[in-house]
């Protein structure tokens, strides 16, 4: 389907051209890979080992265990709270996102109502603005309402996920045969039954995709919880990282004290902060890439 089917002769500008391309690709592979590999190795070293030993020599399990204990002992187990908060916010937002956006995308694709086109264009425009652009305005709004600091002050704004609605809209308007829904209606299904019993089961892949994107976006969100949640008890792990950073003498010499955090411990915190997302990325690459390039495939 691509150039792969044609002869060898058509390589990238012959031998020398291919070498240049190979070298460029190799340099960028190193650029993208080295930081991640190094980060994973850093969690298995002691603070001294991290500096004096070869950067790519693996450390030991005992050092990993020590780093683990130091991390979870920080501020009496604050890290556990932060990870639990992240899970609460991301899962809470995911559930509301699905309840709100799957029916909305369905209705916009397969039914007619007033202001449908307006809602669609609004969805597109908001979907394309960076989500940080609305953070301070939402803060000012919720501050007036006195909602700052509550978990809902992050969960509800995260649940407003126009991209999920658009994905669902595209899916229903291109992939569900209208005759199927008409047949269900003739068989006596109510409108709600048509959605719940016929359309929804067929939309399982898109529900999963919306759920994934919503989860990743909420889990990684920094600016919104940073602004909305003043108390450390409410931090998600992404914001909690800043507390750990502030207590790392290597970066912040004034912080040396009983609660100080060593570099490998901070590295471990970084790994833990991305672990759920990293695992999903690794194990669902095909699925993800298929979703991201859905528009780029041939009709």
């Amino acid at each position: 389907m691509t150039t792969a089917t044609t002869g060898r002769r058509s390589g990238l500008g012959g031998w020398s051209g291919r070498t240049i391309v190979g070298v460029v690709l190799a340099i960028f592979v190193l650029f993208f890979v080295i930081p991640i590999v190094w980060l994973l190795l850093a969690t298995t070293k002691s603070a001294r080992g991290l500096i004096v030993r070869d950067p790519f020599a693996p450390g030991g399990l005992s050092d990993l265990r020590a780093n683990w204990h130091q991390l979870f002992a920080f501020q009496d187990g604050a890290v556990t709270t932060w990870v639990a908060n992240s899970a609460l916010y991301a899962v809470g937002a995911l559930v509301i996102t699905l309840i709100a956006s799957i029916p909305a995308g369905y209705a916009m694709a397969l039914t007619r109502f007033r202001f449908r086109r307006l809602l669609l264009i609004l969805t597109l425009i908001v979907m394309l603005i960076p989500n940080t652009a609305l953070v301070l305005p939402i803060f000012l709004e919720l501050n007036t309402l006195g909602l700052i600091g509550s978990p809902l002050s992050v969960i509800l704004p995260m649940s407003f996920f126009p991209f999920g609605v658009y994905l669902t809209y595209i899916y229903f308007s291109t992939s569900i045969p209208r005759d199927l829904l008409a047949a269900a209606r003739i068989d006596g299904c109510s409108e709600f039954q048509v959605f719940a019993r016929v359309a929804l089961p067929l939309a399982a892949p898109i529900v999963a995709l919306v759920a994934f994107f919503s989860f990743v976006q909420s889990w990684n969100n920094f600016f919104l919880p940073f602004v909305m949640l003043p108390s450390s008890d409410g931090y998600p792990i992404q914001v909690g990282l800043t507390s750990l950073l502030a207590s790392t003498p290597a970066f912040n010499p004034s912080s040396a004290g009983t609660q100080s955090v060593q570099l490998p411990t901070l590295a471990l915190a970084t790994v833990i902060s991305v672990l759920p997302v990293l695992i999903v990325f690794l194990f669902s690459q095909r699925f993800l890439v298929a979703g991201m390039t859905a528009g780029g495939t041939k009709e």
Binding site: F28, F32, F222, V239, L266, T270, S273, L278, F281, Q285
Partner: peptide
């Protein structure tokens, strides 16, 4: 390989 760093967003990648 090119795509994987995308998992490290926000504060994690800065750190």
């Amino acid at each position: 390989i090119f795509y994987l760093p995308g998992a490290l967003a926000g504060a994690s990648s800065v750190l």
